[in-house]
Computed example of a mutant assay.
Amino acid sequence: MSKITNIPSEIRNFFSEKRRSIVMDTFTRLLEGLNLDTRSLGGLKRENCQLTNLQVFQILLLLPFFAIKGFSHYDGSVLCRMFGGKKDILYSYLSQDNVNWRNVVYRITNWLLTKVTVRQDHKKSLLPTVLIADDTDLPKTGMHMESIGKIFSHVHQKCILGYKALMLCWSDGRTQFMLDFSLHGEKGKVDGKEQGLTSEQRNGRYERKRDEKCHIAKRKEEYFMSKGVKLLDMVKNAIRNKIPFDYLLVDSWFTCT
């Protein structure tokens, strides 16, 4: 494939007129309509990669639509045969520190909302549009992960190894979009066992040096932030991005003093 070939156009050429479904045709037009620039996706391309960052990003979006369950299944798949490369191009792309994923997600969501809010079923609906916030446990079994630690699980009523995830989505009662998410940890209350781990366990975790001004470093600063405080920040960000909503739906504990 040519380095300057646009992937959606290439997909359209790959399928013959008889085989091309309406769904695929619509999806490729959707990808083209997102109009994401290379700067917001980490620049033009990375060294030793035959694909641009925009092309790799488009492959990532296509994976579930081709029933590719994960990066490890990319090799040998129809997408791999079409566009080349190995699974490493996907892993290395997502390991970049200079992509503002919050901005990318909001740009996609805003574009999708413009398509949803003009529909007659949305305009005639008596249901309110809402932001929905919720938190959940992300249990893990290995220690070689960045900032991994013990968290208190209200589901299991005990401390488990993992992360806490806080998520914000938008819904009109028919359609739902993810807007934002953050990962959180708990410092713990025992001196010498921060995050419920021994010093040996903490030293054995994955660590990576980053530019303090990069987007990933900024997100890491949220790690020990209160989820209530972070939720307020998320809602303000949704307002700045002109997301329309009537109510914010949360669990009752979010409103505690």
Rank of each mutant, 00 (worst) to 15 (best):
M1P: 11
S2V: 13
K3C: 01
K3W: 00
I4Y: 09
I4N: 08
P8N: 13
S16G: 10
S16I: 00
K18L: 10
D25A: 11
L30F: 15
L31C: 06
E32G: 04
G33N: 11
D37M: 03
T38K: 06
R39Y: 04
G42S: 10
K45H: 13
K45C: 10
C49K: 10
Q50F: 12
N53A: 03
Q58N: 15
L63D: 04
P64S: 09
P64W: 10
F71A: 08
D75I: 04
G76I: 06
L79W: 01
L79M: 09
M82N: 06
K86G: 12
L90S: 06
S92M: 09
N98Y: 02
N100D: 15
W101D: 05
W101N: 05
V104R: 01
R107Q: 15
I108Y: 08
Q120I: 08
P128Q: 08
P128N: 13
T129Y: 00
V130C: 15
L131Q: 06
L131G: 10
D134C: 03
D137R: 11
G142P: 05
G142K: 09
M143H: 09
Q157C: 04
C159W: 02
I160G: 02
L161M: 13
G162H: 06
D172C: 11
G173D: 01
R174M: 04
L183D: 06
E186N: 02
G188M: 07
V190Y: 02
D191V: 09
D191T: 12
G192Q: 07
G192N: 12
K193C: 10
T198D: 06
K209W: 11
K213F: 00
A217D: 10
G228C: 12
V229K: 15
L232K: 12
V235P: 02
N241K: 13
D246H: 15
V250S: 01
T255N: 11
